[in-house]
Design a protein around this nucleic acid. Structure first.
Lengths: 221, 221
DNA sequence: ATTCTAATAAATATCGATATTTTTTAGACT
DNA sequence: AGTCTAAAAAATATCGATATTTATTAGAAT
């Protein structure tokens, strides 16, 4: 592997590159919900062949970001309030579960990871919003990372992304929510480190449901 | 669509055909856990081109039945006791959740579906084991089908399949479990129809955990 | 004997072309 | 006008060939 592979954003395979780009575009709403995803168009967009595009789209069905209808192609997964609320609720349930498992199995290493990812997230607010987004996801996943159940964590990560997608879809005009997000994160961290499962869970779910309520209003429009 | 399409088992697209066949082979253990899945070999096996095979494998990644490693192909998902137990436990949690939601939202239509799928399952015991397996899954999914959360149901279906896979992997030599499965199903049905969530859940989880205990022993070998 | 390296073989990933299917369009009929 | 039907266009799905990458083998050096 050349040095370039590791430092640049360039992906190893065309399929992976297409997967990442398409995923990003769907999460950001650049490919609107429900939109038909024509191979030729994406081919042009991604400057690659039909095979990588099709394979990437097939992979994205795993993530519930793309729907595949046999013999009539792919489309960006539809979005609606019912689905949003389903995602939000299921996410709360599963994260609550994973959080409690993580805390129950707490180790010094896990604690340290929490502190670290939280710190990085705090610092990243000064930087580009994308850097913060990344750090934000990393922190939230770190909380669940000690659950001992990779499948559960996978589901949580999936639901996290789906939720972010709705945030991006809804955040059309209105300004970013003016809440003290930093304080909320701090409280979650504190409770988790203290192994206070009930408080950590309560904070976490409040954190999600507040954002959810805000987004729910946006989606009505 | 010709008449043949609807009556024969022949799939509409090569990709879907490959997907179904491969899925079946992995669930049945014909493609052993961890095994490398070489495109050329599968191409020969399924008598189709490389593209449908690759696409089918990409789709199977969703179901956690296939692992994809960039630039070095696909392999059947590994199987081990830890994963089995994780699947079993998560399945119990999620099905409990879905069952309670289903019961909470009970409708006459749902009840009737339960009765119907249960009846079909009972009848199917006389027929081929594969017919029973299909009916068994249909019954279990019908129980959860009223949860109002398609995503949750999707996860449950996924975990169901993964569990079945372990059953098939473990059932190498030993005879089929000699329990009164029919009675267990009957009890679940009865409790569900009566909207007794606690009893239904208890029955369901006992049903799963008994099978799980049995399979766990097999997997030690 | 063991590790390193170059050459070879094998397998994956990708492309471009073509067959198949679906969708659209335009004309005929009621 | 509103359907139905046939032809044309567009898009999907698939194939066969090739480029790229990884894995294997055999020989050289320590």
């Amino acid at each position: 592997m050349s040095i370039i592979d590791e430092t640049s954003g360039k992906e190893a395979s065309a399929t992976r590159g297409a997967y990442m780009t398409l995923r990003d575009m769907i999460l950001k709403g650049e490919l609107p919900a429900g939109q038909k995803l024509k191979i030729e168009r994406l081919r042009g967009l991604l400057k690659t062949g039909a095979s990588p595009v099709r394979e990437a789209l097939s992979l994205l069905t795993s993530d519930m970001l793309v729907e595949r209808i046999d013999q009539r192609g792919f489309r960006a997964a539809p979005a609606n309030k019912a689905n949003f609320e389903e995602i939000l609720e299921l996410r709360c349930t599963l994260e609550d579960l994973a959080l409690r498992k993580s805390i129950a199995a707490a180790t010094p290493q896990w604690e340290e990871q929490l502190i670290l990812t939280h710190h990085r997230m705090c610092k990243s607010v000064e930087q580009d919003i994308l850097v913060f987004e990344e750090a934000h996801k990393t922190f939230h996943m770190a909380i669940l990372a000690n659950s001992g159940s990779p499948v559960l964590e996978r589901y949580c990560a999936q639901l996290y992304d789906l939720n972010i997608r709705y945030r991006n879809l809804a955040a059309g005009g209105s300004k970013y929510q003016r809440r003290d997000i930093a304080a909320e994160h701090g409280e979650i961290l504190e409770a988790a480190v203290q192994c206070d499962a009930d408080r950590a869970s309560a904070c976490l779910l409040k954190h999600y449901r507040l954002t959810g309520k805000y987004l729910g209003r946006e989606l009505d429009a």
